[in-house]
């Protein structure tokens, strides 16, 4: 059972690097206007010293850049014979175990940004709403393969409530 603690083993699969790129791009898109506004507006309005305000979103951005990297590295999933394991989080770590037989619904979604980066997100629903089993950053073929496999296994081991 020790393999569950150690999430670096070969059975654990990481999520796509595209997810990290997308999240970093989104971060940059949100923060660049703020940095620019903070740095440029005060000199234009005649209060040059306040240009340092631009540093706040910049620092936030740098921290976010690193945090996203760490968070991305923490995402791991593993398909075992009878259940799916998902591990994630750095500060708040979470490991979710969902037996295939308990799955009520498998959902694959892909938003406009995710499609641009060739990503898809897979979500499992069980009869318990608290089950939080989502894998972001799969390639669409991978997501579809996983969805089909999970559905098949779920049917074979179906247990309901």
């Amino acid at each position: 059972m020790a393999e569950v603690v150690d999430v670096t083993g070969e059975h654990w699969r990481p999520v796509q690097p595209g997810l990290l790129r997308m999240r970093r791009l989104l971060l940059a898109l949100w923060l660049t206007p703020l940095v620019l506004a903070g740095a440029l507006l005060p000199p234009l309005l005649g209060a040059g010293a306040l240009a340092a305000l631009g540093l706040v979103p910049l620092a936030l951005g740098l921290w976010g850049w690193r945090a996203l990297g760490r968070n991305w590295r923490s995402w791991r999933y593993r398909e075992r014979d009878d259940d799916l394991l998902i591990s994630r989080g750095v500060l708040w770590r979470q490991l979710t175990v969902v037996p295939y037989g308990r799955m009520q619904l498998v959902e694959v979604t892909s938003g406009p940004f995710e499609r641009k980066f060739g990503l898809a997100r897979l979500q499992l629903h069980t009869a318990a709403a608290a089950t939080d089993a989502t894998i972001p950053g799969l390639t669409p073929p991978d997501a579809e393969r996983l969805r089909d496999r999970l559905t098949e296994l779920g049917e074979a081991r179906s247990a309901g409530l």
Binding site: L91, W92, R93, Q94, L95, T96, V97, V98, P99, R102, T126, A127, A128, A130, T131, D132, A133, A159, L161
Partner: peptide, 12 residues
């Protein structure tokens, strides 16, 4: 028999 999923969480 009624367990739907199991989770392990750890805060900082």
């Amino acid at each position: 028999a009624k367990v739907q999923s199991v989770r392990l969480t750890r805060g900082p």
